[in-house]
Each structure stands twice: as structure tokens, then as C-alpha cells.
Amino acid sequence: MTAVTHEAGAPFGAAPPGAGGEAIVTRGLTKRFRGGQVAVDALDLAVPRGSVFGFLGPNGSGKTTTIRMLLGLVAPTAGEFSVLGTRPAEALPRVGALVEGPAFYPYLSGEANLRRFDAADPTASRGTAARRIAEALERVGLTAAAGKRYRNYSLGMRQRLAIAAALLGPRELLILDEPTNGLDPQGTREVRTLVKEIASDGTTVFVSSHLLAEVEQMCTHAAIMRAGRLVAHGTIASLNAGTAARVRVETPDAPGAAQVLRGLGLADVRVEEIDGADARARLVSAELGGHAPERLNAALVEQGVAVRGLAVARPSLEDVFVRLTGEGFDVDG
């Protein structure tokens, strides 16, 4: 696929699409590495401004490669994209990025490292650097370790420093590649809170992850990659809508319960064993459909079926993810 921008003699970057609505747009974005590996295959992505966008996919599905292309680190083989309505070189001062883990100068302190990366940004002011660096360190809870050499940082501290580096200036877009990698549970929660906080200021956050629960909690939108291809793309709600909520009934009288549920018109009624539980107790599950769970309970009891427990399992992104990317553990390609 080739460019068409030259045909009308248009200077590049003059109000391209996405200038108002989308923080990131890609069209047929493709990366074939030397050696023939197609890491990203005709990717069409639209990341609305102000969204928290989860970018999901199993290992090796092309998330990092996509992010590298968006940051201008890797040149696409084909396709087009825009970041903040323009090309990376112009957009990057307004973009904070974390790509494939932290990378800093081991012999410098955390603070000196941030000063170094701030100096690399031609739009950053030297005068405000000290204040911005202190704020960024404060935000990720590293103030106490600011003067410590990076070499002596723990994995979580390194990850935090990388997030601090992404927050050095006023950002319109944050691109975070697996930001909670290596963080302790508190750190993970803090990052989640931080992302929500940043998003509430109107900053778009594009976050890659394979922690589905995390994405479900933080994100408004998500896209799922598999082997370089986009397999799903939408709001979290619309993604989950593909998988129905299920009611799960724990009962010693599984056939009876199943019969009642079928009688009420519930679809996909299944009887499952419960691991390690009382041998006589079984789990009967069915698609909830439009039924009210309390009515189901009443109906079961009315029919003389003993109910030990009743729960509604909302579909999780994990179900969607596994459905779209397969159960297999091995990486593709």
C-alpha cells in the first residue's frame, strides 16, 4: 500500500483525520521484519481521544511492535497511521511512552536519568525541569529513592521510574507497554489509580497488557491482537456483550435444577462438577438471558430443588480473550 498524500500536493500534517476525534489512527499498518516475520498484519485501529484503551494480545502478538511504529522507532512496511493527528516526530513531545520495560543509565541516579531524558526533548524547558522531575518522581512514589543509583533500584522501582519518565511533561497521550510488569500488588493498584487519574484530566491512555482483569478495571476501550492481526476492537461493554452472563446454581439435585432452568427457557444449560466440594453437590449453569436471578431462585425452591448457592457470573474480558485468541499456551509464529 502506498501513500496518497502527495497526489494533491498537500503538505503533510495539515489537519489530518483524527485531529479532533482520535488520538491514534492506523490503516492497514503492517510490519514485516527482515527475515519475513510479519509482526503486525494490516492493523486498523482507532483510539478515541480521552479513552483509556487496552491493547491486548498473547505473547508475540505484535503489541510492542505496533507501539514502536507509533513512536517512530520502527518503520512500517505498509499502511498509514497518525498519532494526535500528526506524524510521530511532531506528536512525540505530547506523548509519554513506556516501551518494553524500563531502560536507564545504571550509573546515574533516578533523578539524573530523568534529567537526561528531559534534555532530549527539544520542547522541554530547562527552567522548569527540576520541578517537573520532582513532580514526576512524587507521582510514582520514588521521591525517597531519587538520589539512588538506578543500578541499585529494584524491578518495581525501575518500572516506576519509567512511568515517571513518561510523565515528565504535559501529555495528551500516554502509551504504556505493560506498565504493571514487575510491580507488587500495591504498585499495580497505584498504577491503575494513576492511569485513571491521568485519564480524568483528559489524557488518552493507550495501555498494552495481558492482564485482562486489569484492563477490564481501567479501560473504556480495548483491542485484541492475535498473531499480528486485530481480532476484536471496541468498548469494553461491547466486547463483553459477545459473551452472555451465566447463572450458576449449586445444588445436590442437579437434574432437577437443570430441568427447572430449561423449563424457564434458559439456554445452554450445563451440569458441572465442583472441584473438591461435597461429592453430591453439583453446579448447574445456564445463560441468564433476560431473567431476573431472584425469580430463578424462587422458581427452583418452588419446584422443590434445594439451592445451596446461586450466583450470576458476568462475562469477563478473559472469556472474550480466550474465545478470540484460543486456549493454547504456545505462542503463535
Binding site: T5, F12, P16, V25, T26, R27, V83, T86, P88
Partner: peptide, 11 residues
């Protein structure tokens, strides 16, 4: 094709 996006040639 989508004119206006950053093309490969451009990047």
C-alpha cells in the same frame, strides 16, 4: 487508502 495519515513513505 486513507489520505492524510502518515504514510510509510513519509515516516
Amino acid at each position: 487508502r486513507a489520505p492524510g495519515l502518515v504514510s510509510v513513505a513519509e515516516t
